[in-house]
């Protein structure tokens, strides 16, 4: 898919995120919108996957460690054809397939259940170790939040990924600077993030998490790195694409009402038109 097509797809995914959160009446728009360009680039450019065969043994894997951003994953999976788009409107509702946080047993295309923060990198390491054991060439991707890295397990896993030289693993850190209780720098300082990961012997790429071309280049670079895992520290804007949600901590975990959603969708549709949708 071309870069401009990826931008259009990311715009559609943002619209899906807003639309599915309205009937759900709860969920996490901020961190879903911040990750939309990253997830779009992965699912529509980088990853070797087959929606007709979600459990294909040779597929690339994706672990959404910041599982509360489930809407962006669900939108990407639906756009990709893993399940009908109608399912998006059943998000978080009793008896429906799309749980509040990703559930691999209920949703085709979800490679790992997640949502309890700090656990995804360890799981991704396990998948990458299995790939090496089986001499398979699949890649494993894992998306972390910047608030999430306060969890000690992330650093246990960071140490282990470097120890086992997991060069088939790429982590992406959605560096949007906000978490539930406020700016990450005031809740628990995690800076300097790039230096921390370098000190843990990772290859670090700092990238604009909304610049799809730059993300494509960064993923290509990550694949070339041998003998160590790579992390993209992707600078993002929480709520990206919806003016009144951008950089607003209040949109971490509350859904828009119908009126707010209409405003958001209007903005996104205008952006889409400017991209030639």
């Amino acid at each position: 898919m071309s870069t401009v097509d990826l931008k259009r797809k990311a715009n559609l995914i943002r619209q899906d995120i807003i639309s599915m959160l309205v009937p759900a009446k709860a969920g996490h728009p901020g961190g879903s919108l911040s990750a939309a360009d990253i997830v779009t680039t992965l699912y529509f450019k980088e990853m070797r996957i087959n929606p007709q065969n979600p459990n294909w043994a040779d597929r690339d894997r994706f672990v959404l460690s910041k599982g509360h951003a489930a809407p962006v994953l669900y939108a990407a999976l639906a756009e990709k054809g893993y399940f009908p788009k109608d399912e998006l409107l059943g998000l978080r509702q009793t008896g429906r397939m799309l749980q509040g946080h990703p559930d691999m047993k209920r949703t085709p295309g979800v490679d790992m259940s997640s949502g309890s923060l700090g656990q995804g990198l360890s799981v991704a390491n396990g998948m990458a170790l299995a790939g090496k054991l089986d001499k398979k060439d699949y890649q494993v991707y894992v998306l972390l939040g910047d608030g999430e890295v306060a969890e000690g397990q992330v650093w246990e896993a960071a140490m282990a990924a470097a120890h086992y030289k997991l060069d088939n693993l790429t982590a992406i850190l959605d560096y949007n600077g906000l978490q539930i209780d406020g700016p990450t720098d005031s809740v628990m300082s995690s800076a300097p993030l790039a230096d921390k990961w370098r000190a843990f012997c990772w290859h670090v790429i700092e990238v604009d998490g909304h610049d799809i071309e730059a993300l494509e280049k960064a993923f290509a670079e990550a694949k070339q790195v041998k003998g160590k895992p790579t992390i993209l520290i992707a600078k993002t804007v929480k709520g990206k694409g919806v003016s009144f949600m951008e950089n607003q901590v209040g949109w971490h975990g509350s859904a828009p009402n119908a009126e707010q959603a209409e405003q958001a969708l209007k903005e996104l549709r205008e952006e889409g038109l400017s991209l030639g949708e």
């Binding site: 043994a57 656990q119 396990g126 170790l129 299995a130």
Partner: peptide, 10 residues
């Protein structure tokens, strides 16, 4: 967690 990932990959 790593064990979980290994199991998820067979």
């Amino acid at each position: 967690g790593t064990a979980a990932g290994l199991a998820a990959a067979g």
